[in-house]
Design a protein around this nucleic acid. Structure first.
Length: 605
RNA sequence: GCCUCUGUAGUUCAACGGAUAGAAUAGAAGUUUCCUAAACUUUAGAUCCGAGUUCGAUUCUCGGCGGAGGUACCA
């Protein structure tokens, strides 16, 4: 970084001196030179030809000569067409490594009391079924985005809005009453969320049977398919009972509320277990049952101020046609809340709890429209962060035969998936025989770290915005561009460092550069140094995948180095010391980077 | 219908408007008396189609074609 800004300053000076271009160093873009060419940094001169009024080659040559003469960071340069490739002086690389080595949290920026307060909402589950792969993607992204925001000097509050009320909960409750025979997590040995999910499915099965029966009956009475289906769905006794239950809930019926609390507690216990396994957590949890009334109040205030309109039937609407959108329902005719009302209420509570500067919602891209509207509404209602709220919109996880649908049973359960990953990691480890000296407990811990690492890296390495494919047979891999690949490299470095300590080498002590650096070694220093810029970019773009890909590239480079050069067996003491420091800093940076993704590193594997 | 996102090797993913479009995996061929072979090396293979802007387009604009999502009383 230091080297880069030094060169950038020299290039800016050259452009000013030679061609009168008004530019400061921060505006000069330097690229890393492609591997096929000689050099470390490349400056592209095409944009400045207008100012130089000379051919690309000549311009690049002139800038190169100026830069080489004015900064000691550039040892030599070459020109290919409009590309000026600059070679950094070797001792500069060692100096740079020394700076990085001295900084235990290199690349990260600490927050203080004056730093912006960023609230990040993620997870936000329904309490009627267990978490599945889609939720896993959400949770890992949310956690990673929070870590990255923190690493960029923000104060972060991680929050979760639990959707604990509504017709879907009533369905599970009703089915449990009807078919459950008093089953509890204790009596069945099932996790609470799975138990509830089981009755949600049971409801659906019975409901469908009822609908099918009614449709047949209505058709026999002369209705067509469509009419019959619609009528049957409305009149199915189970659905009517569920609605009645929701009404009782809203009225505060003690029996319904009691059952609701009990069953929700089961679910929360199950969720907590899954969250813990995934390694995610929250600073503040909100419950929709607490927030939905707040939203109603705020909407009514807005109505008084003339921001919203009431229709003849009593429903309340926001007219967003001047924003290029439609009208949006905020309160039903019977005064009950809709989704949007609840998000407004949640926003109100949050803002009274925290002086939020920026709000980030980690929610799937199916809700893009919702958040577009929410942003406008919050802005109208006077939330200063409303206009610039960030909807971190991520894509769906698809299975080989399409989208996951809980109703159709085509879901990949979060707990099952985690268990399977760890099981496979364990099997691979046991097979290798590398851990024969470890206790079963230690081996299980390594398997946990590696299995979770594989899963997390798999979900975080791809661009969050895009839909991604999960193939149960093929996606789980421990070789190639994977979490375990990176973890393995880390473990190998740790092994070297442990041995170095045994031999009383000091891997913190960097010698003077009295030796030639190999190209690979220079590349690795350059890559390690680049971590700081990568963290900033990831923060700006809310992009965990940038971090993941960076860690992979660095790891790959180090593996090549590891194969080609020896660290401990190097006889030249200065070189050996240098390589120890280099290795230690690669390990440090990939540990810091992977930590931003919530991925742990094993000491051995 | 309208709105949003998306289209890159057989497959899964990369590429601030820059050089010969990178990886991984699957395929073929190799590397272990050497700090951990979950590694390394070699090899073959791709920008949906058509215009436009630009010195330069996978990237930006427009139009097709394909995929996903949303579309007002589900969250």
């Amino acid at each position: 970084m230091k080297i880069e800004s030094q060169i950038a300053a020299a290039v800016a000076a050259a452009l000013k001196e030679l061609y009168g271009v008004e530019i400061n160093a921060g505006e000069v873009t330097l690229e890393k030179t492609k591997k096929e060419f000689e050099g470390h940094y490349t400056f592209v001169v095409f944009p400045y030809l207008r100012a130089s009024k000379k051919k690309p080659e000549v311009t690049a040559q002139e800038v190169g000569e100026y830069v080489a003469a004015h900064t000691d960071a550039v040892a030599s340069f070459n020109v290919i067409k409009g590309f000026l490739n600059m070679v950094v002086a070797p001792e500069k690389w060692v100096e740079l490594l020394g700076d990085i080595n001295a900084d235990e949290t290199f690349g990260l920026t600490k927050a203080d009391e004056n730093s912006p307060l960023v609230m990040i909402e993620y997870s936000s589950p329904n309490t009627n079924k267990p978490l599945h792969l889609g939720h896993v993607r959400n949770n890992l992204l949310g956690w990673a985005v929070a870590q990255i925001a923190e690493a960029n000097g923000n104060r972060v509050v991680k929050t979760n809005i639990v959707n604990d009320r509504g017709i879907h909960i009533c369905k599970s409750m009703l089915a449990w009453l009807k078919y459950g025979n008093g089953a509890t997590p204790e009596s069945t040995g099932m996790k609470g969320d799975h138990l509830i999910g089981h009755y949600y499915v049971a409801f659906d099965q019975h409901y469908r049977a009822e609908v099918a029966e009614l449709v047949a009956k209505f058709k026999a009475e002369g209705m067509n398919e469509e009419e019959a289906t619609e009528k049957a769905k409305k009149e199915a006794p189970l659905m009517q009972e569920a609605r009645e239950m929701l009404v009782k809930w809203e009225q505060g019926d003690a029996e319904v509320r009691g059952l609701w609390s009990k069953m929700n507690e089961w679910v929360y216990a199950g969720f907590d277990e899954t969250y813990k396994k995934m390694g995610v957590g929250f600073d503040k949890i909100y419950y929709e049952s607490d927030t939905y009334l707040e939203g109603r109040e705020l909407v009514l205030e807005g109505l008084e101020k003339g921001l919203f309109q009431r229709k003849e039937d009593g429903s309340v609407w926001a007219d967003l046609t001047e924003n290029g959108l439609d009208e949006k329902l905020l309160l039903r005719a019977d005064g009950t809340s809709v989704y949007m009302t609840q998000d407004i209420g949640t926003a109100k509570l949050r803002y009274s709890d925290f002086p939020i500067d920026k709000m980030v919602y980690v929610v799937g891209n199916e809700q893009n429209y919702h958040f577009q509207v929410l942003s406008i509404l919050l802005d109208k209602l006077g939330f200063k962060w409303g206009k610039d709220l960030v909807h971190f919109s991520y894509g769906m996880v698809e299975l080989p035969n399409g989208k996951m649908k809980s109703r159709e049973g085509t879901v990949v359960d979060a707990d099952d998936l985690v268990e399977e990953m760890v099981r496979q990691a364990k099997a691979t480890a046991d097979e290798s025989g590398k851990f024969d000296d470890m206790s079963e407990e230690e081996r299980q811990e390594v398997a946990r770290i590696v299995g979770m690492g594989a899963l997390k890296y798999f979900l975080l390495k791809v661009d969050a915005r895009k839909n991604m494919l999960f193939n149960p047979e093929e996606s789980i891999d421990f070789n190639g561009n994977t979490g375990p690949f990176i973890q393995y490299t880390y473990a190998r470095i740790r092994s070297i460092l442990r041995k170095a300590e045994d031999q009383h080498y000091d891997h913190a002590n960097l010698p003077k550069a009295t030796f030639e650096l190999s190209g690979k070694e220079q590349e690795i220093i350059s890559s390690v140094a680049n971590f700081a810029a990568v963290v900033k970019l990831a923060g700006k773009d809310y992009s965990p995948s940038v971090i993941a890909n960076y860690c992979y590239e660095l790891t790959k480079e180090y593996n090549q180095f590891y194969h080609e050069f020896s660290v401990l067996k190097e006889e030249d003491e200065a070189k050996r010391q240098f390589r120890l420091v280099l290795s230690a800093n690669v390990a440090k940076v990939i540990r810091l980077g992977m930590r931003l993704l919530g991925i742990e590193m094993p000491e051995r594997m």
